[in-house]
Design a binder for these strands. Structure first.
Lengths: 235, 235
DNA sequence: TAGTGGTCTAGACCACTGA
DNA sequence: CAGTGGTCTAGACCACTAT
């Protein structure tokens, strides 16, 4: 073999990727089974399995029992976005963080919110709006609905010092979440609190979370115009 | 033990998550080491390792050799976005796909493009613009620069029938990619080809790819207003 | 230096699925 | 039914790092 030693799952992965990139294994083509590859690379089948499993998870290979492993024809690559609290997002940019509560009311959420939370309408929830500042300038708005049935303790917290963003993460664990990204023109509320014109285009991240079967919260983060969400991509 | 049988890595993971959610293991706290957990669950250490490794990859646990495994204090959850060719995106919505080339020129890319591709300015590239249609209606615009040094064969392809999006994926593999999501008001070009007003807010996905050290392409996909990018979230 | 996670191995059995 | 991937196990050694 002209290739360097192949004895770790990482090196197996590298060699497989090399063969795919060099068209030794073409898109759609079947590759040898795990046992044969293990023999060829002189390593255990477990090692080959780990290498191939990760490539299948990242969409480069397609595996099926009995019929074997193929190079994906139309690889669906997976971009990963790190979702974290806004304070950390700001601090990681090297800016100083500020927070201001705008209002906190108990109200009936609009249909868009109950729909995203997979609920019927009519239930009252806690509605919290706030602005996150970077070096004193508005960085993002937070518009959040909290389900008081699942999170009754939110009724006693005023969110004046600590954002709901952070308070929930520290106090209310969740099991399941959805995330949606969209763009809209700046609403009147956004124009006022982000200090932008009605021509501004705003990037929104909407996130709903559940704990077991109970809805926890639905939040929209609206970013200052020009904001980018950057992904750390995999292969 | 009152818990159901724990004998697969999946059930180990479920049990660990249950303990974290129920605050049996609190944020920041250390959990038992792999050997002890294997004993408790009456399974192999390898099984525990796989369960914990995945949780560490998804940001719920933090692991360090010698010092052990802790529940993450500020979990950075990872939202995964599937990036695939626009044709499949449209077909998965149950619409019929259409494609039209707008123009194809050789030109010097603007600074924003060379910057994203990590290049010096001055090099000529192939510039291809096209519209993707869903049921005959503009769905997204593709504005693409292709590096002719890395992909010389693009000079001979006209992109009249098949989009660059698809042609590149089938013919030019890449190793590395970046992805960026942003919102802007509709440009004159977007207003014309997406048939929207100057008040429209457009969601863009920018993607640059490289093969080994060579830049392959930089593309901006501009979606029809109202488009959402939806994530399949983990844990 | 010692404790922890990271990985490899050989062998085994199971689950799925195409022929 | 038979071939393939999916997983588990016990044991081993290695790599990193707190002390």
């Amino acid at each position: 073999m002209s290739t360097p030693d192949i004895n770790s799952w990482q090196s197996v992965q590298d060699e497989v990727l090399r063969r795919i990139h060099n068209r030794i294994w073409k898109p759609g083509a079947q590759i040898p089974n795990e046992t044969d590859l293990a023999k060829e690379f002189n390593c255990g089948r477990t090692t080959v399995n780990r290498a191939l499993r990760e490539l299948a998870e990242s969409g480069i290979l397609e595996r099926k029992r009995k019929s074997g492993t193929r190079v994906a024809l139309h690889p669906v690559s997976r971009a990963v976005i790190a979702v974290q609290i806004v304070r950390r997002e700001i601090e990681e940019r090297g800016a100083s963080y500020g927070y201001a509560l705008i209002d906190r009311t108990v109200d009936t959420p609009p249909h868009a919110v109950t729909f995203a939370m997979e609920l019927a309408q009519g239930e009252e929830m806690l509605h919290v709006r706030a602005v996150h500042l970077a070096d004193g300038v508005p960085y993002a708005l937070e518009d959040r609905w909290i389900c008081l049935r699942t999170v009754p303790q939110a009724r006693d917290y005023d969110f004046a010092q600590k954002s709901a963003n952070e308070w929930l993460l520290e106090n209310v664990p969740y099991n399941r979440a959805t995330l949606s990204i969209l763009a809209t023109p700046a609403s009147a509320f956004e124009q006022e609190y982000l200090a932008v014109s009605d021509k501004a285009s705003i990037l929104h991240v909407e996130r709903a979370t559940w704990r077991d079967k109970g809805p926890v919260t639905f939040v929209t983060i609206s970013y200052q115009p020009g904001h980018r969400i950057i992904s750390t991509t995999t292969s």
